[in-house]
């Protein structure tokens, strides 16, 4: 193994420009992938947050008792589509009304808790499930009225769905591009050393004796590029994220925790090692067979 490390180091040292080109290309690809991974992570959290924002509200009849309301709540929970519930009693409704109209004394004098209905605000796990929850509420005899903005909800559902498809497709594309870039770089390095492979083969070197230096070289590029990209994105992401601080308030912790970076960099390193291993194996095998 030591001789494989020496051979790897010799490959890098004796052709520094090629090694630098390989590192720059792989680092650029990794950087794009990592930045996108972080954006993907943020946008996923944002979409989940957006999905939980729209609510369907049921206003109860005056004769609705607490046990009827609890029964409806249980029915909604049993559907498995509700994310959260907020019950607003008549008194709480009056407080909200007072707060909203505190500058209009006339409106405040006319309204008492008795004329305001109690209500139940429900948010869905998926925005597309809101109509179904609304339907359950409508069928309840204690519900006077059900309110939710169907048009807005429909448009938001389509936007969220579309965004998810696009980001997932882009993530797959970038992943494939990373694997192919690594394969290409390693194949190129192997091609440059094809005479060495042939000579070693004729001198009696076994398959793995030939493989290891190239695999280690690929792994070195993968580890170096992923780590370097991780460090760069660690410093760049907070700068970019500061512009979106307000949007992400309550959704995502900014700056992004170090553990998230470690996971992204760790995944990148594993991906680099895997892609380098596969790329090196395919490329070297081709010349050994030739």
């Amino acid at each position: 193994m030591k001789s494989a490390f020496n051979a790897t180091w010799r490959h890098i040292r004796r052709s520094p420009y090629q090694a630098a080109a390989a590192i720059i290309t792989m680092t650029s690809t990794f950087l794009v992938v990592m930045m996108f991974a972080l954006i993907f992570l943020g946008s996923t959290l944002l979409l989940s947050h957006l999905e939980s924002l729209p609510q369907v509200t049921a206003f109860f009849r005056d004769e609705a008792k607490q046990e009827n309301i609890d029964a409806l709540k249980q029915q909604l929970e049993a559907s498995g589509k509700a994310a959260s519930f907020k019950f607003v009693s008549k008194d709480e409704a009056l407080n909200i009304y007072r707060e909203q109209n505190k500058n209009d004394k006339l409106l405040l004098e006319l309204v008492t808790a008795e004329i305001l209905p109690a209500s139940l605000e429900v948010s869905a796990l998926k925005v597309g499930d809101l109509p179904e929850l609304a339907e359950i509420m409508k069928q309840s005899s204690i519900v006077e009225d059900v309110v939710f903005a169907r048009d807005v909800v429909d448009k938001l559902a389509k936007f969220i769905e579309g965004t998810r498809v696009i980001t997932t497709a882009l993530a797959i594309l970038l992943f494939v591009s990373l694997v192919f870039t690594t394969l290409f770089i390693i194949s190129l390095r192997v091609f440059v050393h094809k005479d060495e492979i042939e000579t070693m083969r004729l001198l009696g070197a076994g398959r793995w004796k030939i493989f290891w230096p190239f695999l280690l070289e690929g792994i070195f590029y993968g580890v170096f590029s992923a780590t370097f990209s991780g460090i760069v994105s660690f410093f760049v992401t907070p700068l970019v994220a500061s512009f979106y601080q307000d949007i992400f308030l309550g959704v995502l912790t900014l700056p992004i925790p170090v553990v998230v970076y470690l996971i992204v960099v760790g995944s990148g390193i594993l991906l680099g090692i895997l892609a380098s291993f596969i790329g090196g194996y395919i490329a070297v095998n081709r010349y050994i067979k030739a």
């Binding site: 052709s15 000579t199 070693m200 004729l202 001198l203 070197a205 076994g206 004796k209």
Partner: peptide, 23 residues
């Protein structure tokens, strides 16, 4: 070999050492 098959990016020492590394 007729075409020598020496590795041009290796020193003479490293070329001669190649079979020894292999074994």
């Amino acid at each position: 070999f007729q075409d020598l098959k020496l590795l041009l990016d290796r020193t003479i020492f490293e070329n001669i050492a190649l079979p020894l590394e292999i074994i």
